[in-house]
């Protein structure tokens, strides 16, 4: 089987940290700044950063529709700003992809002095590592996932029940930053979703006119 190639949306934010994590797991990585950079990717990570900046640049460089098409077939994981970008509803007028049936509130914990780190339980990670260790989650001016509507599901909460991770098929959203830790379980979990999405797709038929819109 062909090795996986994962894109990191490199409009702005901490995409290098995701890239380093993915390379450590032995996959090919490509930075995505323009629609043509999505071609041939098996999955995509939308990093942390400022969601307003990313949204604006995604509109300016014609990425919104190509990203939506990509997300209908292939795995996407959004961390923090990326999770905001994937949501259907964020209570304000700013460009988003609207791929996941989740409602996200930006800067929900307050300002930077309220940013925090904490251990959380993420049972789903036992798919990649059977030992039920807590995950050390870093929240930077983080959003919360206010509501998760089916078919999206809750993946992790804080002790008070605040939702901080959700999944909808091959789409994944976390309001914290696994890429800022040394723990690669979330990245491995994402690669597992990438594989699943790839297996569902019809085998690639060599063609030069894969998407000419006709």
């Amino acid at each position: 089987m062909r090795p996986l190639t994962i894109g990191v949306l490199a409009l702005q934010g901490d995409f290098i940290e995701h890239e380093a994590m993915l390379r450590g797991l032995g996959v090919q990585v490509r930075q995505v700044r323009l629609p043509e950079h999505l071609e041939g990717l098996d999955g995509l990570i939308i990093p942390g950063g400022e969601s307003t900046t990313m949204g604006k640049l995604a509109v300016e460089f014609g990425l919104i529709e190509p990203l939506r098409r990509f997300g209908r077939e292939k795995a996407i994981w959004g961390t923090c700003a990326g999770a905001i970008f994937l949501a259907k509803d964020i209570h304000r007028d700013q460009p988003i992809l609207g791929l996941m049936d989740i409602v996200v509130q930006r800067n929900a914990f307050g300002r930077q002095v309220d940013s925090f780190e904490v251990d959380i339980q993420v049972p789903a990670l036992q798919v990649v590592d059977p030992e039920p260790r807590p995950f050390h989650a870093v929240f930077i001016r983080a959003p919360i996932i206010e509501r998760v509507n089916p078919p999206a599901e809750v993946l992790a909460t804080l002790e008070d029940g605040t939702i901080v991770a959700a999944q909808q098929g091959h789409l994944l959203a976390t309001s914290f930053h696994p890429e800022l830790t040394d723990d690669d379980r979330f990245h491995r979990y994402f690669l597992h979703l990438v594989q699943q999405a790839r297996e569902k797709q019809p085998p690639v038929v060599p063609s030069t006119a894969s998407d000419n819109g006709r």
């Binding site: 309220d114 780190e117 930077i140």
Partner: peptide, 23 residues
């Protein structure tokens, strides 16, 4: 109760990391 840590160096440099590639 799980300990919640604020104002750590990781959280401080974390915000700087989120600003990368930006103006």
């Amino acid at each position: 109760m799980t300990q919640i840590l604020t104002g750590t160096f990781r959280v401080k440099i974390g915000l700087a990391q989120m600003l990368k590639g930006g103006v």
